[in-house]
Design a protein around this nucleic acid. Sequence first.
DNA 1: GCTGGCACTCGCACAGCAGGAGTGCCAGCC
DNA 2: GGCTGGCACTCCTGCTGTGCGAGTGCCAGC
Lengths: 340, 340
Amino acid sequence: MAHDERRLEVLRAIVQDYVSTNDPVGSKALSERHDLGVSPATIRNDMAVLEEQGYITQPHTSAGRVPTDKGYRLFVDRLSAVKPLSVAERRAIERFLDGAVDLHDVLSRSVRLLAQLTRQVAVVQYPTLSRSAVRHLEVVQLAAARLMLVLITDTGRVEQRVVDTPVDVDATAVAELRTLLNSAFVGVKLVDAGDKVPDLLETAPPHLRGLVATVSATLMETLVEPSEDRLVIGGTANLARGNALDFPGTVRPLLEALEEQVVVLRLMSQVDASTVLVRIGEENAHEALTGASFVSVGYGSADRALGGLGVVGPTRMDYPMNMAAVRAVARYVGHLLAES
Amino acid sequence: MAHDERRLEVLRAIVQDYVSTNDPVGSKALSERHDLGVSPATIRNDMAVLEEQGYITQPHTSAGRVPTDKGYRLFVDRLSAVKPLSVAERRAIERFLDGAVDLHDVLSRSVRLLAQLTRQVAVVQYPTLSRSAVRHLEVVQLAAARLMLVLITDTGRVEQRVVDTPVDVDATAVAELRTLLNSAFVGVKLVDAGDKVPDLLETAPPHLRGLVATVSATLMETLVEPSEDRLVIGGTANLARGNALDFPGTVRPLLEALEEQVVVLRLMSQVDASTVLVRIGEENAHEALTGASFVSVGYGSADRALGGLGVVGPTRMDYPMNMAAVRAVARYVGHLLAES
DNA sequence: GCTGGCACTCGCACAGCAGGAGTGCCAGCC
DNA sequence: GGCTGGCACTCCTGCTGTGCGAGTGCCAGC
């Protein structure tokens, strides 16, 4: 039916106008700005239907319409094409990210870049430990009975732990331990590392067995502990822009939720590298994120998402643009990490 | 003169009342809430003098008085006693920081703790590289002609760099390189590391000389580069609290300045571990920090500040409390880092 | 099924007004 | 000389009421 067709066209127009003007959009303005081929009165009828179906709503009786979460959802799913980035934007990404010296540098540049491109709050997750593999394990002696373990993953992430050993150890024992640990764990994915421990204990020479047991216990703690996943957040200043317009009351609960990290990490856990995930308003099922949308995607090679990154902003955001930016940055970060 | 004495007492009362109520304070309210022993009329005379001297001002003709930056300065310098933390607060610090597993954990817990105690934005600087000493250098082979250097400082900070070597290297060369580097640099302060390079190059066996040169070049780059100083920021949600009252316009410029990091790092560069530094409003000489005060102190042992930490908030803040909290947390962080 | 017309609703901005807090000044008192 | 109570004055704040405009829903006509 050409009928329904036009109604969707009206919804798309409403979303676009509302996103760009931040004013509830009325039938007259709509017919002027878009070539819908029908009069305002007809649009009004369509709007009444759209409202009944729950795609739009009016803030008060005699105001224009505003999309609901459901309306944005339909827009994202069916009405928007992914907007390719401009050449200038692509160039900006390269210029911004090239020259990063280490993992932290890559991620903090990414977060700044993303915040700048989208003018939203950007969030980048460190490569999840559990999905990485061990590149190297280093053992450093700090004192007679105190060692420092340094774990380097294939994504360049470095974790360190101090271990107090049950007995004093000497330099040769440290060297043996280092060799032992590396031969057991290098190349092993961290999720699978636990399975290697019994083996390791068996093959370890008797005089090292106690030491190995203590050290692997600490190691497992480090590796398995998923709470250690870290986030880099940037662009919070963008929240103070649209101000009262975008968020009910203040941005405070949102800032708090972002600092909590847990909330964002949970959202991040669902991403994969192939599709951009969009969660709109209430879909986030977290009070503080009411009125906020979350656009995210995984980075890393297609078969293996190392972590996620994305942006958080008002539901009234430019979805096509944000989705494109998030995807482009994720791809670039994936490349960078793959080659290092 | 008992005269001046009382006038200062009035100033102190004004600061205290204004900080706690956030309303310009009038002579009547002042005489009711404080035991100044004189009538409102007398207080009015004192206030007129204080205003003439620039310590207080009135937002508009018929309103109460508000302290100026100069007034806060006098208050901090001469009128406030350091408020000792409550037992509960001390206990909270210990509970919060004990159990931190590594450097990043210590710092991110500190920043959250500080934000919670003061209800301001908290800022913690990573131990400055240049002031630390080398604890260990690790060399990991990534590919035939690609090595990863991992530098561990005595404060637990870990830095890593990837180096492409001019020629392929084998495992024994890597081991030799590791020994060489460690014997040359362990225990050396990073600022002094540059001086060791010529020595190192001379003593290196000829077949390693090229390799050593490349590697030390990268190393120096890492060490000398002071821009790599990092910050952890938390509690930005506290900015959205007092809202329009505390900051002119929005908190946006402040958030931007915080994310810039450079601004804060410059302020941090001036701290030492013995005295709490307070910069009030205009003293910060940075536009975005107008209306903001910065309370900071160095952490580390008395003779050697490793880095700084502090809080940023409206000039209208509880200085004695914030100073006490900042100092207490800095001490505790200093202890933690000293023993690890 | 679309369109133009029309009456109606309702938020917003602005003006006007009363109330109140706070001040400065002055004359008197200790 | 310094403190005090009294008093007139200022000016912000909050409230109310009104006009305006945008936008709607509905209806009759094409």
